[in-house]
């Protein structure tokens, strides 16, 4: 299972790419594999405030609907519009074209609470 080294991870299987005060968020390879074929992604509205640990999006397969939790708090400054017509990007490229949303972090210190790649790999038994 792919666990890129340059990212931080939440136990609930979201990844975070931090660049300055911007965090790009998606779901991990492990998560997309468990969910199977993604058919729909419900994303937060641009400008919405999200809170670390609270649900802010939904990813659906034909069998399951899974809440996505914001790994960090802040304001949504962008969402991946491509997912509305091609949700399969989450399956095909979870760490790249399948990203979900970008957050302007209100407290970048929250990143420290997330898992390192090694810890996440251990968390999923990879």
């Amino acid at each position: 299972m792919n666990v890129p080294k340059n990212l931080k991870y939440a136990k609930s299987h979201e990844w975070v790419l931090a660049q300055g005060d911007t965090a790009t968020v998606g779901i991990t390879d492990h998560a997309q594999h468990e969910l199977t074929d993604i058919v729909y992604v419900e994303l937060p509205a641009s400008g919405a405030d999200v809170t670390a640990g609270k649900e802010c999006a939904v990813v659906e397969s034909v069998k399951a609907a899974s809440d996505i939790y914001a790994p960090v708090s802040g304001e949504i400054i962008g969402v991946n519009d491509a997912l509305s017509s091609t949700p399969e990007l989450v399956n095909d490229d979870p760490f790249g074209k399948g990203w979900l949303f970008k957050v302007r972090m209100s407290d970048p210190g929250q990143l420290d609470a997330l898992l390192s790649p090694d810890d996440y790999a251990q968390h999923i038994g990879a």
Partner: peptide
């Protein structure tokens, strides 16, 4: 769209 339904979404 069965994922909207109660047998999957339960209280949501």
């Amino acid at each position: 769209l069965q994922t909207r339904e109660q047998h999957i979404r339960r209280d949501k």
